[in-house]
Simulated assay, not measured.
Amino acid sequence: MLRLSRTSTIVLGIIVAAILAFMYLPLLLVVLNSFNSARIASWPVAGFSLEWWHKAFESQPVREALLNSLLVAAGATAIALLLGTLVAFALQRYRFFGQRAVNLLVVLPIALPGIITGVALSNTYNQILEPAGIQVGFAGMIVAHGTFCIVMVFNNVLARLRRLNPSIEEASRDLGATPWQTFRMVTFPQFRSSFIAGGILAFALSFDEVYVTIFTAPPGVDTLPLWIMNEMTRPDEANVVMVVATVVILTSFIPVWASQRLGRDAADRD
């Protein structure tokens, strides 16, 4: 085991602390300004007030944007859970021509810049589907989010499937269980934590997506990130924006934390 000197430990600790401060102090400033009694975001905070939180929760556009974000994230997560799990099983349990290509194509959307995915899907919807009489509307935005959320479930489930002991499933079948019974009572419980963790990450990724949403959202439909972007040009709404941004931060932080806990629990059971 590598041991560091006391000086090296202190230097590395200072570097890590500086990096974490650079990453998270701006987020802390956003949270603090959501409670700022002043009308304009500032530092230091003028005073404590819940006025902007009341205005945010009473705002009809904010409530509609929140509902849209939740619906899109839930729909994209459902698509990711289904397709991501099926592809993971196909690539882990079977051997077929083009297997590596399929693996690459599933992972590629998360590596592509969001603006590229958004432009491509927008062109498909507007120049191919709509002229053919297919109006994708709100569902098109959900499908668009699902394309890059699949990889979250796929990676988690595939990694877990690779660690499963196939002899347990074979024993279940030898004892007379049907394939569905074996999956429900033996296979699924073994990768359930990874399945849920992937779904949580997919939800968080969809909830705060901006670029793909810009190009695929129907006219007049805002999600929370879009609402924030549009309202940033209005200084008198700055602290309400900070409130919504704080909600997005918490909504993103909690799923990531829960996913890590589930991942650790699964590793401990191995």
Rank of each mutant, 00 (worst) to 15 (best):
V210C: 06
E209Q: 13
I10K: 09
M232K: 12
S259N: 13
L20Q: 07
A197Q: 07
T182D: 13
V151K: 05
L91P: 01
D236L: 04
V151F: 01
L2V: 15
Y125K: 05
V153D: 14
L67C: 03
P61Q: 12
Q99A: 15
G98Y: 13
P179A: 14
R261T: 09
F89D: 03
L29H: 02
L164R: 08
A78T: 11
F154Q: 12
V87F: 15
I196N: 06
L28N: 03
C149Y: 00
I40C: 02
S193H: 06
L129E: 11
R234V: 15
E58A: 14
L121F: 09
G176F: 13
E231W: 11
V186H: 15
L81V: 11
C149N: 10
M229S: 07
V72S: 12
P131D: 07
I79D: 05
T117E: 07
F96R: 03
P235C: 02
G114A: 05
A204R: 00
I10C: 09
M242Q: 15
L129V: 04
R163P: 00
E237Q: 13
F22Q: 01
Q135F: 08
F97I: 13
F154R: 03
R39G: 09
T213N: 06
L175G: 02
S193A: 15
G118D: 11
I14T: 15
N33V: 01
A21H: 05
M141V: 09
